[in-house]
């Protein structure tokens, strides 16, 4: 393969890993626990901005080309970890306000408003995160180390993303199939019942909000370290909806389903778009892409609400609960 194709392939793989992490993060919130986080994209964005600020160094050092607050130059894994911390903290803060005792659908809309307002603030205050132009020239971590540049560096980055993605998959699978995961599903199915069983549903919601926020931030941090730039145009509120579509089509609370669903949406839609050579009608095509996404979501909700690979619903039979859990866990963890 020539280097252009290899670079393209590595780009695809990095985006794959980033999106798997983000989709699973949303799945914990939406699929497993039933929290409608319509502000999801904000958390991915917060991670991207955090990682950028933690690796760019002070704004003055870049010759005043872009303006932002703070700015530190931390060694490699620290910007990622910092982003995770920022995502978790933001999850706590937004959850504290947004998860108040409002009806679930209004809660969702308030979270949507949070994400719209956040981008409004960033665009309105150019000195905060460089406004509409966004942050750019984010250094790629460890570039040039051990002679890694160009194609070899891209493959190394893919490897790193695969490792992170694998760790996240293990974490999420363990969580979902643990007793705690059952609490989360109880909250989804009937929060009053969960409360009655002695589990605070609002606490559980808050916990998945923090965890999902942290993972979403991780996905954003990985992405910005690869693309080197992040701007408000990349986290408009409809972007949240893509992840919802992925989870709905794949199958709520089904980790392999979510991964497969995403693959199908991505490849399916993209190939359809590729069939049209774009020209003057490019804007129409871009709009129709969103229309297709919306129709797919409605279609799945109507014809196959359980998704392509439905969640395994465990029934408590005569077998001891513990062994059944473990069996399910191994099966799903391996995936298709």
């Amino acid at each position: 393969m020539n280097s252009a194709i290899q670079l393209y392939a590595t780009t695809l793989l990095v985006y794959l890993a980033v999106n798997l992490i983000a989709s699973w993060a949303l799945d914990i919130q939406f699929g497993v626990t039933g929290v409608l986080n319509f502000g999801f994209i904000l958390f991915q964005s917060a991670g991207a901005y955090a990682a950028a600020l933690l690796s760019l160094g002070p704004a003055k050092a870049s010759g005043g080309f872009q303006q932002y607050f703070g700015g530190w130059q931390l060694p490699f894994p620290l910007p990622l970890l910092g982003a995770v911390a920022v995502g978790a903290a933001l999850g706590w803060l937004v959850g504290w306000v947004g998860l108040r005792r409002l009806r679930g659908d209004f809660q969702a809309v308030v979270l949507l408003v949070v994400s719209v307002v956040a981008s409004l603030v960033v665009e309105s205050l150019p000195g905060f995160l460089n406004g509409d132009a966004g942050l750019s020239l984010v250094p790629k971590p460890l570039l040039g180390l051990a002679g890694l540049t160009g194609v070899s560096y891209a493959w190394a980055f893919v490897g790193f993303c695969a490792v992170v993605c694998g760790l996240v998959a293990i974490l999420v699978a363990r969580l979902v199939h643990s007793p705690y995961g059952r609490v989360l599903r109880a909250v989804r199915e009937n929060d009053a019942l969960a409360d009655a069983m002695g589990r605070s549903s609002s606490r559980a919601r808050m916990e998945v909000f923090v965890l999902g926020g942290a993972l979403a931030a991780l996905s954003g941090a990985l992405l910005v370290e690869f693309t080197t730039a992040w701007a408000p145009s990349g986290w408009l509120y409809p972007e949240t909806f893509v992840y919802f579509t992925i989870v709905i089509i794949g199958g709520r609370a089904s980790l392999p389903g979510v991964a497969v669903g995403a693959a199908l949406i991505a490849v399916g839609i993209q190939q359809a778009v590729q069939l049209f050579p774009i020209g003057a009608d490019a804007t129409v095509l871009a709009s129709l892409q969103w229309v297709v996404i919306g129709i797919l979501t409605l279609g799945f909700l109507w014809w196959r609400p359980q998704g392509l690979i439905p969640e395994r619903v465990r029934r408590f039979g005569p077998t001891p609960a513990g062994s059944a859990t473990r069996g399910g866990e191994v099966q799903e963890g391996v995936g298709p």
């Binding site: 695809l12 793989l13 985006y15 794959l16 890993a17 980033v18 999106n19 798997l20 983000a22 695969a162 993605c165 694998g166 998959a169 972007e239 893509v242 980790l255 392999p256 991964a259 497969v260 995403a262 693959a263 199908l264 949406i265 991505a266 490849v267 839609i269 993209q270 892409q289 995936g335 298709p336």
Partner: peptide, 11 residues
């Protein structure tokens, strides 16, 4: 893991 399937965010 499910990485064998290659997918991307279409957006």
């Amino acid at each position: 893991m499910t990485l064998v399937i290659c997918q991307l965010r279409w957006r």
